[in-house]
Amino acid sequence: MTSVRERIRAVLVGTVDYESGLDALTVTPSAEVDPELVAAVHEACARLWRGGWQPAELHRVVARRGQPQQADLVTDAVAAHLRQFPRATVDPRWLAQADTLGARLWWGSDATYLDEIAARWRLDRVAVLDLVLSLLAILAALPPVEVLVPPPGTAVTPADRAGAAGSSRIDTRLLDRVRALLAKAESTTFPAEAETYTAKAQELATRHSLDEALLVVRGGAPATVVPFARRIGVDHPYEGEKASLLDAVARANRCHTVWSPELAFTTVFGFDADIDAVDLLYTSLLVQAHRAMARAEPPGGKAGRARLRAFRQSFLVAFAVRIGERLAGAAQAALEAATDPADLLPVLASRDEQVRETMQRVFPRTVRARGSRVDSREGWDSGRDAADRASLPTGTTPGR
């Protein structure tokens, strides 16, 4: 007699077609099916945690490949996984992602979990089984990725602890102020006001990063300030164009990127304070780009869909190119205006070499992405105009 676990595995490896497998689970007593399905989800997620996936990343890719409810099942799997470990032994970055997702043990027991899901979401049993089984198929298809944050249950090295503590990151209170200023810049309809808010946010980030570099020059920086990496989500549509914008922002902040389109993220390599600035600035510029694009784009409709898509793609390409040009100029101006620029140059060159070595160790083989086509002159011109109007301070390097 075939066990429930064997039936699940047969569906995942393709020896039984999906609908037949789902039908077989539907007619099997829930007392036999439910614990096995829940255990299979938890085991699949645990495998991916050990394989380098972080809570927010797995939540994003499941939401992208599946349904929002399946991403919620991942959040519950995060909570179930964490119950095995004392909170004090889990990397703070892992915990922060779990907390952001709202991971908590809201259900009574694993034995009743699927029944409680059905009641919570007002679904029938077949729909719940379908959600879980198709989630398992999504999880089974995901490959391991580089371990950037130690997963729960992994021995944490002193360097990991230093990174988790954020010794080289922007101060938490400073980050909160930067986020608040950028939120105001994104929400205002007055370009001059947005410019003021964004300039102040960048000034704060710039001051912190230059101070860190100067500490290296003066021999006062902690030995634990080393390059790290962070994966930043790049959502569809127009992923390639958005990845180009992220790369432009990263290069201006002396970071390097590797885009993984099949997994919907870009890995950004650099020092933590710089990566923080890249993350915040990219998010803000993306909001500004979408807002400007919505104002400038031609009317849609069936007849205009191709034109609209070409416009949007060309707009984002131009926006990324022009932002890159503006940021490169700001980077050079900031360095020239810095105190003791001659002393900073060797340490900045050394830091760049460390970042490159870290990236090459993680990704020893990469392929240069092809540039995006520009099929709309209207979109290109509008994108460059929007980039010229985007809120950036003059004479400072973003995040430096």
Results as ranks from 00 to 15, higher is better:
H42V: 09
L281W: 08
A292R: 03
V216H: 12
V149S: 12
A10D: 15
P35R: 04
A213T: 14
V367D: 05
E262L: 12
L139M: 11
P152T: 07
A296Q: 08
G371F: 00
G379S: 05
R361D: 10
V41Q: 06
L105P: 03
L348H: 09
T206H: 14
A159V: 07
R50K: 13
G220A: 06
P151G: 07
R356C: 01
V355L: 03
A331L: 10
A387F: 02
A118F: 00
V362S: 05
V321R: 09
S350R: 14
L263V: 03
H59Q: 10
D211P: 00
W380C: 04
L263R: 05
H81F: 07
V13D: 15
A221L: 07
V132P: 06
E6P: 02
A194W: 03
R377A: 14
A264H: 14
Q360P: 00
P55N: 12
R122I: 00
R356D: 10
K242C: 05
A199G: 15
A289F: 00
G329Q: 11
A164E: 05
R307V: 11
A77I: 07
Y197D: 00
V258S: 12
R384L: 14
A349R: 15
N253Y: 03
G301K: 15
V128N: 11
L308A: 05
D276G: 10
L129K: 09
A292V: 00
R322C: 03
D385W: 11
D176L: 05
L281T: 14
R312S: 13
I323M: 05
A137N: 04
A320G: 06
A331S: 11
S350C: 08
V126Q: 10
T257M: 05
R377H: 09
L182N: 03
H42S: 10
G270A: 09
T396L: 10
R87Q: 12
A180G: 08
A243Q: 08
V145I: 15
A140K: 02
L58F: 02
V216N: 04
T28P: 02
D115G: 09
E195C: 04
S284E: 12
R47G: 04
R64K: 07
T189I: 09
V90E: 04
V258Y: 01
W94L: 00
P191C: 10
P158K: 03
V149Q: 10
A229W: 03
T189R: 15
T188K: 06
E297S: 06
A159L: 09
D99A: 07
V62T: 11
A221W: 12
Q202H: 11
I117F: 12
A248I: 00
E325W: 03
G379W: 07
A183T: 13
V156P: 02
A330H: 13
D235Q: 02
V217P: 04
L181P: 01
R365P: 01
V217C: 04
A79Q: 13
R169C: 07
V216S: 08
D279C: 02
A229T: 14
D272C: 14
T112C: 06
A294K: 08
Q54T: 15
R400A: 02
R177D: 15
L73D: 06
E336W: 01
A159E: 10
F190E: 15
H42F: 10
K200P: 00
L335E: 08
G300A: 14
